[in-house]
Computed example of a mutant assay.
Amino acid sequence: MAQGQAEKIVEGTVDSTVRLFEGLDQFAFAVGNFRLSVLDALIFLVAATLLYIGVRIVLYVVKKLIRRSKRLDATQGLLTEKIATIIIIALAFLLGVDLLGIDLSALAVFSGAVGLAVGFGLQKTFGNLIAGLILLMDRSVKPGDVIVVGDTFGEISKIGTRAVSVITRDGKEHLIPNELLMTEPVENWSYSSRNVRVAIPVGVSYSSDMDQVEALLIEAVTSCDRVLKNPKPNIWMSEFGDNSVNFEIKAWIRDPEHGVGNVRSEILKKVWKAFKEEGIEIPFPQRDVYIKTVPDRLKSPE
Score class of each variant (00 low, 15 high):
84 A>F: 12
60 Y>L: 14
122 L>R: 10
48 A>D: 01
247 F>L: 04
293 T>W: 12
189 W>H: 15
219 E>Y: 12
69 S>K: 06
291 I>C: 04
284 F>V: 15
217 L>P: 06
216 L>M: 03
252 W>K: 03
286 Q>G: 05
160 G>I: 14
92 A>Y: 00
119 G>L: 13
241 G>K: 01
281 E>T: 09
53 I>V: 14
249 I>L: 08
186 V>N: 00
197 R>I: 09
206 Y>E: 10
158 K>Y: 14
284 F>I: 15
210 M>F: 14
248 E>N: 08
161 T>D: 08
124 K>C: 02
117 A>M: 15
260 V>N: 05
196 V>N: 05
129 L>N: 12
282 I>H: 00
201 P>L: 02
55 V>Y: 03
124 K>N: 07
130 I>F: 09
176 I>G: 03
89 I>P: 05
13 T>E: 08
173 E>C: 01
134 I>T: 00
257 E>F: 10
210 M>H: 05
247 F>Y: 08
302 E>I: 14
61 V>K: 14
187 E>Q: 11
87 I>F: 07
51 L>N: 05
191 Y>W: 13
145 D>P: 09
5 Q>T: 07
248 E>D: 08
67 R>Y: 12
9 I>W: 11
135 L>R: 00
64 K>N: 15
182 M>W: 00
137 M>T: 07
87 I>Y: 07
89 I>T: 05
141 V>I: 09
248 E>M: 13
74 A>V: 15
196 V>S: 11
266 E>P: 08
8 K>C: 02
291 I>Y: 06
160 G>K: 02
258 H>Q: 09
73 D>K: 01
66 I>R: 04
245 V>E: 11
75 T>D: 10
141 V>H: 04
70 K>F: 11
39 L>H: 07
154 G>Y: 01
20 L>H: 06
153 F>I: 01
302 E>K: 11
102 I>P: 01
280 I>G: 02
27 F>H: 13
63 K>P: 06
1 M>Q: 13
198 V>Y: 09
84 A>Q: 07
70 K>N: 14
182 M>C: 09
46 V>M: 14
158 K>T: 10
110 F>G: 11
201 P>C: 02
247 F>M: 06
170 D>R: 03
86 I>M: 14
181 L>C: 04
111 S>A: 10
302 E>D: 07
116 L>I: 13
279 G>Y: 03
67 R>A: 04
210 M>Q: 03
253 I>W: 15
207 S>W: 05
19 R>F: 15
8 K>Q: 13
120 F>T: 00
59 L>D: 12
50 L>C: 06
81 E>S: 13
236 W>S: 12
41 A>P: 13
124 K>P: 01
211 D>Q: 12
272 W>E: 14
63 K>Q: 15
121 G>D: 15
166 V>Q: 00
238 S>L: 11
200 I>F: 02
206 Y>D: 08
175 L>S: 12
255 D>K: 14
40 D>M: 03
106 A>V: 12
109 V>Y: 07
148 V>P: 00
61 V>G: 08
220 A>R: 07
160 G>V: 15
208 S>P: 05
217 L>N: 02
37 S>G: 08
110 F>Y: 03
231 P>V: 06
